[in-house]
Design a protein around this nucleic acid. Structure first.
Ligand SMILES: [Zn+2]
Ligand SMILES: [Zn+2]
Ligand SMILES: [Zn+2]
Ligand SMILES: [Zn+2]
Lengths: 172, 172
DNA sequence: CGGGATTTGTAATACTATAACATACGATAT
DNA sequence: ATATCGTATGTTATAGTATTACAAATCCCG
């Protein structure tokens, strides 16, 4: 298999995933509408390419790797800068996030949040659930201010087992 | 210049750094003693190679890149697996940490903390200060438990300006 | 010494990301 | 309509990060 991350082929549609059990998924249609709305509001354009990448992220069953997205675009004819540029744009719009500890990208699960989201990453099924990380950021702010440090942004990524996977791993 | 990260040449000693102002540094001798102690306590061996890498991390004026460390080891004769293996060992011992958002490594600033440390990374001087991230982890735990998620570990990395740099950037 | 486990060396390759420059395209102003 | 400008995309090449697989050396114990 080319990769572990689940970038769907264009035909796939449902929320079934590699692990076999169905769970977690984005609402693709709603996500695309929201993306259009956000870009318009920002005076930017959700071009066909950017929209295609957004759709791939929304259909993915978890964080997607850049080169897998690249392969999924027009059957791999695109070159690396194509995908990195589209991802950078989507991140700038708050429509997607990069997960540093996975070198992967995911659609925003909260809705155009430009900053300081957090993720709970399941090591069993690969899903990453987004958090509004306000309490976490507040705790970070507290620690930072004690040291005279001014926070501009933060990476918050927890690894562990999601509700669905904790039982199956525990009983294994 | 080969790289921005500050892996010292073998002669360098003080806490002066690329930015010109002196600040932040590890206590090299104490760090090596502690490393020896931790490894012995764990029934593992701090071999000359591992010790050399630990010393490079302690002398570095901030997070160090793997290939820069590699270059600093015996003037670049070593191959990539050499450094990645040593770094993995040091991380396992809690003597070093990987900073995901920088693809870089840093000596533990707290003392053999195996898990869940956090970092405040200054984007001006490049230093990364380690936090005992207990309050942050507590906040994360709270958010996770609401979702039935069991956290095994977390990446907590804030970017911003340290106490020393905030004024100089503000007045620039 | 023999034998097994750990550590290190080495070569090859996979994976991730950016720089630099060329081309295309849509909007606006003559 | 044509020129021009800014934005977006295409293309080539290269830089940077990390792992796999196997070979050799070393250490520890019996
Ligand atoms: Zn988000
Ligand atoms: Zn799961
Ligand atoms: Zn530490
Ligand atoms: Zn600083």
């Amino acid at each position: 298999m080319a990769s572990m991350t689940q970038v769907p082929d264009p035909a796939a549609d449902s929320a079934s995933c590699a692990g076999g059990h169905r769970h977690h998924a984005f609402d693709v249609a709603a996500g695309l509408l929201e993306a259009e709305r956000v870009c318009t509001a920002a005076g930017e354009s959700l071009t066909p390419l950017r929209r295609d990448v957004m759709e791939l992220l929304l259909r993915a069953h978890g964080p997607a790797k850049a080169y897998d997205l690249l392969q999924a675009l027009t059957a791999g004819a695109a070159k690396p800068p194509t995908i990195y540029r589209a991802l950078e744009f989507l991140q700038r719009m708050g429509l997607a996030h990069r997960i540093e500890s996975l070198n992967a990208f995911i659609a925003c699960g909260i809705g155009a949040c430009a900053k300081n989201a957090g993720f709970l990453i399941c090591t069993a099924c690969g899903w990453a659930e987004e958090l509004l990380a306000d309490p976490v950021n507040a705790a970070l702010e507290g620690a930072a201010s004690e040291r005279g440090f001014r926070i501009a942004g933060a990476v918050i990524e927890a690894r562990g087992l999601c509700r669905d996977c904790a039982p199956s791993v525990a009983t294994k």
